[in-house]
Amino acid sequence: MMAFLVITAIAAIRRTDLFAVTMLFGIYSFLTAVLFMDLDAVDVAFTEAAVGAGISTVLMLSTLRLTGRFESSRRRNPLLPLLVVTVTGSALVYGMLDAPPFGDPQAPVHQHVAPRYITESPDEIGVPNMVTSVLASYRGFDTLGETIVIFTAGLAVLLLLGMREGQNLRPSRLAIGDFLVLRVVVKVLVAFILLYALYVLLHGDYGAGGGFQSGVIFATGFVIYDLVFGEADVRRVLPPRWLARLAVAGILLYAGVGIFSMLAGRPFLDYSVLAHDPVHGQHIGILLIEIGVGVTVFAVILAIFYAFSGLRRPSQVA
């Protein structure tokens, strides 16, 4: 497992074919996700697989399509970078020497702060998935920040690449979409993916998953449809302008819950005021903000994908 990771990393350094490097990155990310499963971090594994091996890799491939597959063979003097890396690596190893042993239940991280999440959260928040409790309630403000981060990324990409509407769309029939079987399979598949995304959103309280993962999967469904049937179809259903509105709506829903708490005389994002029973209020609050996160993430990821895939290679611009 770990050996595979190391091999992948070394191969990624050595290859000059960027297409191969991107694929290696996808594998690397996927292996990391498997490692996370092994370390009990199911939510993180899920997200890493969807984001690292999925979204990031797709974006890298879209970039390569425009910028060329091979890096120039000119090698720079690797001495200084090697020195910097060695120093940094030594500092890391130095730091690890006094670290608590791996997996030791007596380590400070397991003795302070975390125990409350583990023992109290089922009663205080009433959600079996502790990761969801911490993410959405105890540290709910970080998650709002995280949603803003992804919103910022979408904004930055649109500021850089522009939001194209109407003209220049890929034709709705590519060669790949002409296979009848493929069309049927994809339609069924996409329906399943979207359903699954909803399941992930609503099931986040009980198992792995939540708003973010759901948004990513939902966007993936659209991306697959888009790849097979061309852009025009998807864009008729969801024009970019509407994506922007959706992205904004998701954040406003999230922040709106927080502002409601403030109006009810409690701190920002205190969900206990949402129902008579505080625990029930937590439950409602978490569901609402997860929907908000999901909507924004879906809209932003799809908008970023539109922006990347819509660009033409310089030769095609004419």
């Binding site: 971090a41 993180v44 702060v113 975390a114 583990i118 990761v131 409790s133 911490v134 993410l135």
Partner: peptide
């Protein structure tokens, strides 16, 4: 249980 905080 493993610590949920680093996961978050």
């Amino acid at each position: 249980y493993s610590n949920p905080l680093p996961h978050v």
